[in-house]
Design a protein around this nucleic acid. Structure first.
Lengths: 223, 223
DNA sequence: CCCTACATTTCGCTG
DNA sequence: CAGCGAAGTGTAGGG
């Protein structure tokens, strides 16, 4: 990883065109060839960047101080250096990577293991039920044997209701499954999403992650 | 801006919990107090971060080498330093910021100014037509005087069709406007989005940004 | 390779 | 403050 602090101006021509006037910034050149330009605020987003795979060429002669980064699609990032204030390189090696807990996939596992959380007598058909337009998070049956499609979100918003609606439209065309009800399950459901779901006859279920995990932990302790 | 290269492990507890095993990484501490941790790949996304506003406390005594970053919501990022390999600070000042061109807003202006691009005899009613569920990008009339709602996207995907569908449902309840047709306009329309749009009787229009801009430039030259 | 969906999405605007 | 939509979204995973 190469760290450069420099007064520079930047031009990007690709999916849009953008320009950064001359100012001091951090230029980050990573081992995969990617380049990002950071101001002294915002942790997450660089001012400008080029994602890998891409190649960096440092100009020489007339082009001294002009760095050009290009990718396969022909997008171009041009950094014009006015003054280099710091320049250092460091060997970091490959990162072992982030270990996460509490994302949607985990919620899905927990709920599938305790599908009766949605109601007494519920039984799991399967997780990640494949359809032509994508996977349904959970397909199950209620106490009456009716098919239920469950869409799980960490935060339930309108997009999730739309997604579930598309699945329900499709599933209800299958005479082996129809009629299929929908359940929109999330740790938090936004009011607008609840209104839309209710309007479409979709039930909402608020999931308690800690409780689900607690039940799971109990289960693990018991067996 | 402070640049630290260090062998470190990281724990995050907030919207999820996450852990980074001990490895060499870049830690970026910015003037706004934000902290991000980068591996030697991917230009855009840090491995872990804390967005401003937040506060960093460097431990001392027993906690030497333990940095704790907390924010208002109680999210916590704990960086445990095993070995500092580099540590430097740099004054950058406030960045003048990025100047963009070619985003959706611009496309909308261009198309509104040349609404007949969609078909002969089209006339603009207005841009950003407000409804209870959000603004319709463009509302216009076709040659027959029928109302047309236009949703503009840079890249036309399924979500955009869903959005336009919601607007059309609402607009068609207004007897002054109904019947309202829909046009899904984008620089690029994904096949699946086109299928969904067509299935719902929504027309698709592929916009040529350069041509629209060229026409606009001509117009500017003429008047 | 395309498509789909998730993300600690972030970010900006509007009410 | 919430709500909603855009983003050069990036990123991972399946067919």
């Amino acid at each position: 990883m190469r760290l450069v602090i420099a007064r520079c101006s930047v031009d990007y021509a690709g999916r849009l065109t953008a320009h950064l006037p001359l100012a001091p910034r951090l230029i980050l050149v990573k081992a995969d060839g990617s380049v990002s330009i950071h101001a002294d605020d915002r942790a997450y987003k660089p001012l400008n960047w080029m994602s890998p795979p891409c190649t960096l060429k440092e100009g020489s002669g007339d082009d001294a101080g002009v760095w050009t980064v290009v990718n396969k699609a022909g997008e171009k990032l041009i950094i014009t250096m006015a003054e280099i204030l710091h320049d250092s390189s460091h060997e970091l090696g490959v990162d072992p990577g982030l270990i996460k807990d509490g994302v949607e996939a985990h919620l899905q596992e927990l709920l599938a293991d305790r599908i009766e959380t949605l109601g007494e007598g519920y039984t799991l058909i399967r997780r990640e039920y494949q359809t032509a337009i994508g996977p349904v998070d959970i397909l199950c049956r209620d106490a009456d044997g009716a098919t239920v499609a469950v869409e799980i979100k960490r935060r339930g918003e309108i997009d999730g209701v739309e997604q579930l609606t598309r699945y329900l439209d499709l599933l209800n065309r299958d005479p082996h499954l129809a009629p299929v009800r929908g359940v929109f399950a999330a740790q938090e459901i936004k009011p607008q999403a609840r209104v839309l779901a209710t309007d479409r006859g979709i039930d909402c279920a608020v999931l308690d992650y800690d409780a689900l995990r607690g039940i799971e932990d109990d289960k693990l302790r018991l067996f």
